[in-house]
């Protein structure tokens, strides 16, 4: 009838007629002869990776050299999570001695590769694991976007498979020593969020979450849900960022509110629930342009008010985490 009856877990480099890694026949049919992963599949490892008890020590070992782990969350989509994550990554990596890694766990809509300008890359694996893609020597990223045959390929996966790939990102990526690991998430409060939080909390911990929102109530009501989520799963909230707040017309320089804060915006929400408002970033069309072209907005337009807002937020974050 439809998609899910076909094996969707067929790796891109699999031989023809691969039964799929989740199948009971994985590694056991004729087509598997000669496939480099045959042994892994036949032993059932590929299938049960998510429940594997050896996961915890493996993630522990892998992420032992990662100092700060930050989640970027928002209830609603399209508020600028990935853009913020990337700008934060670039800003942190401006210091040559700081190593930053970005992990994109938005499995169905990965934007990080495009925004960082590395969408044509693909992942290489070596004896020490998957090598992340480097934007510059001290800024690396991993995303499912690097594993897809084409940019238009849809990832039509249910939860367990998304969890599988997230655990692989945590367990198999050779990050090396990192000062910062930024985790970009999809919108909502579902499988991806539960998985990454569970794996990180069971192993190396999470330093906290940055919540992103836009000023209108429709977005804020989703952020309230995200705050509820953080509190339920015990993730400290570092603060809230209001994005797309106010638009300055390039013609007449008048500021107008595209997404009007009908209920007081992020400021009032932050006061209501007792979290810090880290800052507000104005809506600047050049931010979206930079993201489309995969260049750093902070480098391109260092003097813009939006760049200043980003840098202030990042300073504040470092301050909260006690790095300065």
């Amino acid at each position: 009838m439809i998609a899910i009856q076909q094996p969707l877990d067929v790796p891109a480099n699999a031989p023809d007629h691969c039964p799929g890694t989740e199948s009971d026949l994985a590694g056991k049919v004729d087509a598997c002869e000669g496939c480099p992963n045959q042994d892994t599949c036949a032993s059932g490892q590929a299938k049960s990776a998510a429940q594997d008890p050896t996961m915890i020590p493996m993630i522990n070992e892998r992420l032992a050299g990662v100092k700060r782990k930050i989640l970027v969350l928002s209830g609603k989509g399209g508020v600028g999570k990935s853009t913020f994550t990337s700008q934060l990554g670039w800003a942190l990596a401006a210091d040559e001695d700081v190593q930053t890694g970005i992990m994109d766990i938005d499995i169905c809509g990965p934007s990080i590769p495009t925004i960082l300008g590395i969408s044509n890359e693909s992942i290489h694996s070596s004896s020490s694991g998957w090598s992340p893609i480097y934007v510059q020597p001290n800024l690396s990223a991993i995303s499912i976007g690097f594993l897809l045959p084409s940019q238009a390929s849809a990832v039509i996966w249910r939860g367990p498979k998304k969890n599988g790939i997230i655990s692989q990102f945590l367990r198999d990526v050779d990050w090396g020593d990192l000062d910062w690991m930024l985790v970009d998430t999809p919108p909502g409060t579902s499988d991806e969020h539960l998985s990454v939080v569970r794996y990180l909390k069971d192993t190396v911990g999470v330093d906290g979450a940055v919540l992103i929102t836009t000023p209108q109530e429709v977005a804020l009501q989703d952020v309230r849900k995200e705050i509820d989520f953080c509190r339920k799963v015990g993730i400290p909230i570092l603060g809230l960022v209001e994005n797309m707040s106010g638009f300055v017309c390039p013609g007449c320089k008048t500021e107008s509110q595209i997404f009007k804060p009908s209920t007081g915006g992020a400021k009032r929400l932050a006061e209501e629930v007792g979290i810090e408002l880290l800052g507000t970033v104005p809506l600047d069309p050049r931010i979206g342009k930079s993201a489309d072209y995969g260049v750093s907005f902070l480098d391109e337009y260092p003097d813009s008010p939006a760049s200043q807002a980003y840098l202030d937020i990042i300073d504040r974050l470092r301050g909260i985490l006690g790095d300065k």
Binding site: G75, R158, G159, P160, T189, S190, D191, H193, L194, Q221, R224, K225, E226, I227, D228, F229, K232, V233
Partner: peptide, 9 residues
Amino acid sequence: KDDSVIWRG
């Protein structure tokens, strides 16, 4: 209305 729906698939 602020309750989150934390559901898996």
